[in-house]
Amino acid sequence: MNEAAPEANTKQSGRAHGLGRALDRPLAHVASRLRSPRSPRRPRLWFEILLVAMSYWVYSLVRNAVPEQKAAALANADWLWSVERFLGIAVEQSVNHAVNSVTWLIVSMNYYYATLHFIVTISVLVWLFRRHPGRYAAARLALFATTAVALLGYYLYPLAPPRLMNGGHFIDTVLVHQTWGSMASGNFKNMSNQYAAMPSMHIGWSLWCGLTVFALASAPWARILGLLYPTVTLMVIVSTANHFWLDAVGGMACLAFGYAVSYAWYGSLPHRLPRWIPRKSGRPRLSALGAQPHREPAATRR
């Protein structure tokens, strides 16, 4: 009887130890997930279309709901213009007048300003979705965070564009050449907040597109175009008198915030994440949480 007691105690201890190990595994898994960056998931087409459409609708709604504080916006424009003169970079008026004298060029810029802002951004999102699904969600988050923080700028710092300044002698190129251009000119001016110039999302979005293409495209010509796109956009927003140079700096700051948010969530910049996400199978899906990343052929890793 005395010999049976130690044996029973050993079995009980073994069961308790086994139960402890069984409980430790899920707890360790949860702790690992909490400590590790979030793993990108395979994007779903219908969800992404809905998300992008809804996000842009909300962005436009909020942006246009910002009170048009005309007096404050004009005062801020005068102050910003004086700061640029102090810094020696207040050449927007000269650029505006010089480019406006070349009709075919300024008309092209008007249409560029009105259309490519949306076309190129959507095209890059589609390209990411199809060719870089593992990086899509992180890049999309950076873009959305950039756009969201820009709304704070519109609320906190109403700013008139150069073409609406009092005595600024800037040319509203859309009105002069009667082109379909800025939503803040002509027949569209009542549909858009005219005093939401800081920050410039034409720069924020175009720089996001350019950096994404430069980092991920394999063709040299595509990478060059990626760098040229935000550069040309900068010239367009100034030539058409829709923004100051410093509005562009505001757009860059918003993009830096967007990438910081994406990095904090995923633990990496978008271009450093795996290009592909393995499809679901009978086994648990591989992820960045301790699993080996999907290996790609050397020629297609970009």
Rank of each mutant, 00 (worst) to 15 (best):
1 M>Q: 02
1 M>N: 04
3 E>H: 04
8 A>N: 14
16 A>G: 06
18 G>R: 15
18 G>H: 08
19 L>W: 12
21 R>F: 04
23 L>Y: 04
24 D>V: 01
27 L>F: 09
28 A>M: 05
28 A>D: 03
29 H>C: 02
31 A>P: 08
40 P>E: 04
42 R>V: 00
43 P>H: 03
44 R>G: 01
47 F>V: 14
49 I>F: 06
51 L>V: 05
60 S>V: 14
64 N>F: 04
65 A>P: 12
68 E>N: 08
70 K>V: 15
72 A>L: 15
73 A>M: 11
73 A>F: 07
79 W>C: 06
81 W>V: 09
83 V>N: 03
84 E>Y: 05
85 R>C: 03
85 R>S: 11
87 L>N: 08
88 G>N: 09
92 E>T: 05
93 Q>Y: 04
95 V>A: 00
96 N>G: 12
99 V>A: 01
101 S>K: 14
104 W>H: 02
107 V>N: 05
107 V>E: 11
110 N>V: 13
115 T>C: 04
118 F>T: 08
120 V>W: 08
121 T>M: 05
123 S>H: 10
124 V>R: 00
125 L>G: 08
125 L>V: 06
125 L>D: 03
126 V>H: 01
129 F>S: 06
132 H>P: 02
134 G>C: 12
139 A>R: 06
143 L>N: 02
144 F>M: 11
145 A>L: 03
146 T>Y: 04
150 A>N: 07
153 G>K: 08
153 G>N: 02
153 G>Q: 09
153 G>H: 01
156 L>G: 00
159 L>S: 00
161 P>F: 02
161 P>N: 09
162 P>W: 14
162 P>C: 02
165 M>P: 10
165 M>Q: 10
166 N>T: 14
167 G>F: 09
170 F>I: 13
174 V>G: 05
176 V>Q: 05
177 H>I: 01
179 T>L: 07
184 A>Y: 02
184 A>C: 10
188 F>W: 11
189 K>Q: 13
193 N>E: 02
193 N>K: 14
196 A>G: 06
197 A>H: 07
203 I>S: 00
205 W>I: 09
206 S>P: 07
214 F>Y: 15
217 A>S: 12
221 W>L: 13
221 W>V: 15
221 W>Y: 10
224 I>R: 06
225 L>M: 13
228 L>V: 15
228 L>N: 00
231 T>R: 11
231 T>D: 09
232 V>R: 01
232 V>K: 03
236 V>F: 08
239 S>F: 01
239 S>G: 12
244 F>C: 10
246 L>V: 12
247 D>L: 12
247 D>R: 12
252 M>S: 10
252 M>F: 14
254 C>A: 15
254 C>P: 02
261 V>T: 08
268 S>D: 12
270 P>R: 04
270 P>M: 09
271 H>R: 14
272 R>W: 14
276 W>S: 01
276 W>T: 07
277 I>K: 05
278 P>A: 12
278 P>D: 11
280 K>Y: 04
281 S>L: 11
282 G>Q: 04
282 G>R: 08
287 S>H: 01
288 A>R: 13
290 G>N: 11
290 G>I: 07
293 P>H: 01
295 R>H: 12
296 E>A: 10
296 E>R: 09
298 A>G: 11
299 A>E: 15
299 A>K: 13
301 R>T: 09
